[in-house]
Design a protein around this nucleic acid. Structure first.
Lengths: 326, 326
DNA sequence: TTACCTTGCTTACACGTGTCAGTTACTCGA
DNA sequence: TCGAGTAACTGACACGTGTAAGCAAGGTAA
């Protein structure tokens, strides 16, 4: 096949429009302090259009020292579908500020995050959990100006989820709750936050704290946990996420424990199969739209040096999806 | 906090080592055609180490015209967990060749892919389905030298999956098969490939082609499909993926159709909840390790200009996970 | 007329890197 | 002693962009 023409540069556009390269730059970045007549402006824009000119990000960031690239580090976890919605929303929110999002899956055998940061030239790096001090320092040394979240940002998202679960069950009259922790070690931090939310709700309504059990995705393990809960008088289970909740449902079924009559179960995430379980799973879907938008605000604020607008309670909106498992 | 020192450049290293910048470049990229005594070499390396020097990827790719960055476009779909394993494996395979992977979620409201390609300066762009001609052209114009997969690459991955499903059911004695298509429009292309694999297997063993039905993630829809299949004498269902399979299971249960006695069901992906369904779901897990490695080979081959080693049959290894739904 | 401002441009430099073409200083054979 | 060769290094350019500084032409005020 014929080798396609090399990508157009601003010099090509300048030649086509019959002006200097500087004029092209002024028009395309439409700088207010430069006065450029409409005829010239249009000539440049048309030339850029017809040549399919796209500014070379590397060259641009080389001179400006700042790159419009935001790097999102995605943890190497069995990721739920929710994350892709977060990413989508986050990317859209950043795009409104002219920022481009790329994601990198942090795996043991892949490149270390600071290297990736340096090669793509990201100005901001963000992730789901706060980075440890060493990594944060390395990221800054690799050129990142903003590293988020800081340790104070995370609880705002996770804690209310547990509260919503517990309040729903308590509202239905349950007096003794259980909490199903995930088995995967990397979920532990997130799980601890959500559990704390459940505990808070219990304390506030005068109940005892929930009876915790680690439930792997195995029917036998889940069944044992169910038997134990029933023995302790537990009637409602908050599960860390929907997969764990499905395991609890399977465990209950294998021990002939009726759901929701004998044991109510509520999950988190509203995964695709949640409406298809037996009985259909009640769950909490938290609004990634708002979380993503908030995160984007924090990034932009960090980049511009302004303070971020304070988070209002209503921004973190997690919603109950009521089905028949509670 | 004290503003951290600006990142070190190769000029800083040169000054610290008492040599010229060119020498620094020769040492760090250890070029064989330049003879550099060990004393000098060590001086440079030590200076680079102590300054925490990392070459500036933007500047490097600006001059070389090539960037070590591979961009993976992830479709805006309800993504299965399998994809993250693919990404992990792909990134690791690319890293062995000194390439860095970043992913971008292609969403309607985000940036168009060619823009992202241009801003990060990717030399290769790849995705799960082939790009349409316009997009491919735009990507090339944005600086991508390699755009994959080409339309001829995809069937190799998807088609055998359908075959494995069908052969498993046929081997169990089923004479009339059904195929459960997904409802989401963006899955259609992938589904068509997998369905073709099922059809091939049927033809080869002298069976009639499968009875297709579109099954959304809704119990009612799935139940109607099940009734229809039973009415046509179908005894085994190949589902597009595990979510669709779970819907079929739920539909069967709501119509009191016993699985697997009256209707066998097999999915694809081995999602987390697959062992937890009732009955536990038989499924096909395809080896993303091999697919990712193959894809990385294609990318590297495209960048070096060499031909890629031909795919052997054994590289595309998809494995049956037998449970009780068949 | 002269001094000075505005408009509409252009010229020239900087960013950090890789690399080619020189340029020393030294060794070696005749 | 002299030319040639080689080891060890340096100077300068290019990549594509943003932008400060400058410049010609025309207008305006004194």
């Amino acid at each position: 096949m014929p080798r396609p023409a090399k990508r157009a540069t601003s010099a090509d556009v300048a030649r086509a429009a019959g002006v200097s390269r500087a004029t092209v730059s002024y028009v395309l970045n439409n700088r207010p302090d430069q006065s450029i007549p409409d005829t010239t402006r249009r000539r440049v824009l048309e030339a850029a259009e017809s040549l399919e000119y796209r500014p070379h990000g590397n060259a641009r960031s080389l001179v400006s020292g700042r790159s419009d690239i935001v790097l999102l580090s995605v943890p190497d976890l069995p990721i739920g579908t929710g994350i892709s919605r977060f990413v989508e929303e986050f990317a859209a929110a950043l795009a409104e500020h002219g920022l481009t999002l790329v994601t990198h899956l942090a795996a043991a055998r892949g490149r270390p995050l600071p290297d990736v940061c340096a090669t793509v030239g990201a100005t901001a790096v963000t992730g789901f959990a706060p980075f440890d001090a060493d990594t944060a320092r390395a990221l800054r040394a690799a050129g990142a100006e903003v590293v988020l979240p800081s340790p104070t940002d995370v609880p705002d998202i996770m804690l209310p989820i547990g509260s919503i679960q517990a309040e729903h069950l308590i509202g239905r009259g349950h007096q003794r709750l259980g909490y199903a922790l995930p088995a995967h070690p990397r979920f532990q931090q997130m799980a601890a936050e959500r559990l704390r939310g459940v505990e808070q709700a219990c304390v506030e309504t005068g109940l005892q704290p929930p009876v915790t059990a680690t439930v792997s995705l195995d029917v036998g393990v889940a069944a044992d946990a169910v038997t134990n809960w029933i023995g302790q008088g537990v009637t409602g289970i908050c599960a860390f996420n929907d997969e764990t909740a499905v395991a609890v449902l399977a465990g209950a079924q294998s021990r002939a424990v009726r759901v929701p009559e004998e044991l109510a179960v509520i999950g988190v995430d509203d995964i695709l199969v949640a409406p298809l379980t037996n009985p259909p799973l009640t769950t909490v879907r938290f609004d990634l739209h708002a979380v993503a938008r908030r995160r984007a605000e924090l990034v932009v604020a960090g980049l511009t040096g302004h303070d971020a607008p304070a988070a209002t309670e209503s921004e973190i909106s997690a919603g109950l999806v009521e089905r028949s498992s509670t």
